[in-house]
């Protein structure tokens, strides 16, 4: 099982994962599950009615708009990085936070490397399944790498131009 690192109040911690990833060709697990978009669309209503918490895992070529009406029912959205160079999930994360005001967990899954931490945290990811065995401490160091940012994004950090106004 991959390590799960969660970010709370700016602190990265390794935590036990309450959720089980269930692939489309696997039998349904018990408890809280993370499903593909297709499987959520077919089984989601039933699983939610059982009182389970549900997460949806979007591939990088699936757009968050597909989830717009379901977001209030979801505990988390997992966004895939099939390769770390595939940057589409950054847009999905940012839209989830900024446009759809999603307040649940946004989890980075797939080719997730600590070098991506400074970007991931800025677009709204608050949970990570690192593919490089990085520890929570190493993620914390990567998250704290930059003292300043130049842009407004989903993390609410004060951009340089606003810092300058004091």
């Amino acid at each position: 099982m991959p390590t799960l690192i969660e970010l709370h109040e700016g602190i990265a911690k390794t935590v036990p994962d309450a959720f089980t990833h269930v692939a489309d060709d696997e039998d349904m697990a018990t408890g809280d599950v993370i499903l593909s978009l297709a499987r959520f669309q077919s089984d989601g209503d039933r699983l939610l009615s059982e009182g389970r918490r549900i997460g949806v895992r979007l591939k990088s070529d699936e757009e968050v708009e597909a989830l717009a009406y379901d977001l209030p029912r979801l505990t988390l959205v997992a966004l895939e990085f099939p390769k770390h160079l595939d940057g589409r999930s950054y847009t999905n994360a940012r839209l989830l936070r900024e446009r759809f005001k999603f307040a649940g967990q946004i989890r980075a899954v797939g080719d997730v490397l600590r070098e991506q931490a400074p970007w991931m945290v800025r677009v709204g990811f608050d949970a990570y399944e690192p593919a490089d065995d990085a520890s929570a401490n190493e993620w914390q160091a990567a998250l704290n790498r930059y003292r300043h940012v130049y842009q407004r994004a989903a993390d609410g950090r004060v951009p340089a131009f606003a810092e300058r106004e004091g």
Binding site: G87, P118, W119, Y150, Q151, A160
Partner: peptide
């Protein structure tokens, strides 16, 4: 320059 430096969304185009 400032806007594009370490842009959170557009660094893996």
């Amino acid at each position: 320059r400032q806007w594009s430096t370490f842009h959170p969304e557009f660094s893996f185009l």
